[in-house]
């Protein structure tokens, strides 16, 4: 009996040590980025020898970074709008008519782009957009990112709609509301948090996406991750850490908003 107890204590200790070590390893790279952004010298080292805000000053004086930032926001907002419209309508349509044949292919079809390596998607879309003659525009980036953001919005909305009480919609119809009226006044108020979280996640996906953007952007439309990539291949200085800190901050704020609207557990489960 005592030996079992002894073994169980050891198991518990090993288990805790295991996940705490993993926790540290998962957080460490992000910590490195944030801490090195406050470095005083140009050499990227962790921990830095001395601290300053020098690189933040550099960032706000650098037109290239500011332009890339603007590009990222334009593409992100475009993606959020398009993915939200497509995802919400699609999920709503499937919810109304659950056993249609076309409906059953929507889920797998929407999910499939996430399982294709982004490099292959980038190559494919670059060839396609070149054929169409719209290479290098913001539109191409928005369309590519929507391919990845839509599945998130779609599955978030599926999960939200499945908890919605559909009898309310019948009641609205009985009271004489048209389809658009009942959607705006009955469905939307009940699912608006889901729509908000879906749109927010779509924005973040676009903001952070890198490989497709690398293929599809040009010097005038390059987004933050693409410019960061070009920079780190040339020199490893703390400027990229500054930019990264902003991006991490963005995600943190977005996540906080999403969690406030719902909860962390739910948001996390939607992300997989």
């Amino acid at each position: 009996m005592t030996s079992t107890l002894h073994r169980e204590t050891l198991e518990t200790l090993a288990f805790r040590a295991g996940y705490l070590a993993l926790f540290a390893l998962l957080v460490l790279p992000l910590l490195v980025v944030v801490v090195t952004s406050f470095a005083a010298s140009g050499r990227l080292a962790f921990p830095p020898e001395s601290y300053s805000l020098v690189w933040y000053g550099e960032f706000f004086g650098d037109l290239r970074w500011l332009t890339a930032f603007e590009n990222s926001i334009i593409v992100g907002v475009g993606t959020a709008i398009l993915a939200t419209v497509l995802g919400v309508l699609g999920a709503f349509g499937q919810e109304i008519d659950d056993d249609s044949r076309i409906g059953s292919i929507v889920g797998p079809l929407v999910l499939l782009p996430l399982l294709i390596p982004p490099v292959i998607l980038g190559i494919t879309l670059l060839m396609y957009f070149s054929e169409l003659g719209i290479r290098g525009s913001y539109v191409t980036l928005v369309l590519a990112h929507t391919l990845w953001a839509t599945p998130l919005v779609y599955f978030v909305m599926r999960s939200v709609f499945s908890r919605f009480d559909w009898q309310q919609l019948d009641a609205a119809a009985d009271l004489g509301a048209g389809p658009i009226q009942s959607f705006v006044h009955v469905v939307l108020p009940n699912v608006k948090q889901g729509v908000f979280v879906g749109g927010l996640l779509a924005f973040i996906i676009s903001l952070q996406e890198f490989v497709m953007a690398l293929f599809l952007s040009t010097a005038s439309t390059e987004t933050i991750p693409v410019l960061a990539w070009t920079e780190i291949r040339q020199a490893l200085d703390p400027m990229v850490s500054v930019v990264s800190t902003f991006l991490i901050l963005f995600s943190l704020v977005a996540l906080a908003l999403a969690v406030l609207a719902t909860n962390l557990e739910w948001v996390s489960r939607q992300l997989s």
Binding site: Y19, F23, L26, V27, L28, P29, L30, V32, V33, T36, L44, A45, F46, P47, I204, L207, Q208, E209, F210, V211, I224, P225, A228, W229, I232, L236, V240, S244, L247, I248, S251, L252, A254, L255, L264, E265, V267, S268, L271
Partner: peptide, 30 residues
Amino acid sequence: LLLLSVVMPLLTTLVIRTYAFNPLLSPTGT
């Protein structure tokens, strides 16, 4: 906290996630 430790990297661009390993793993790294 544990959930946050997977969600945060997931919402961070892979450029940053990759880049952070340089100062950690290089021969003169942490």
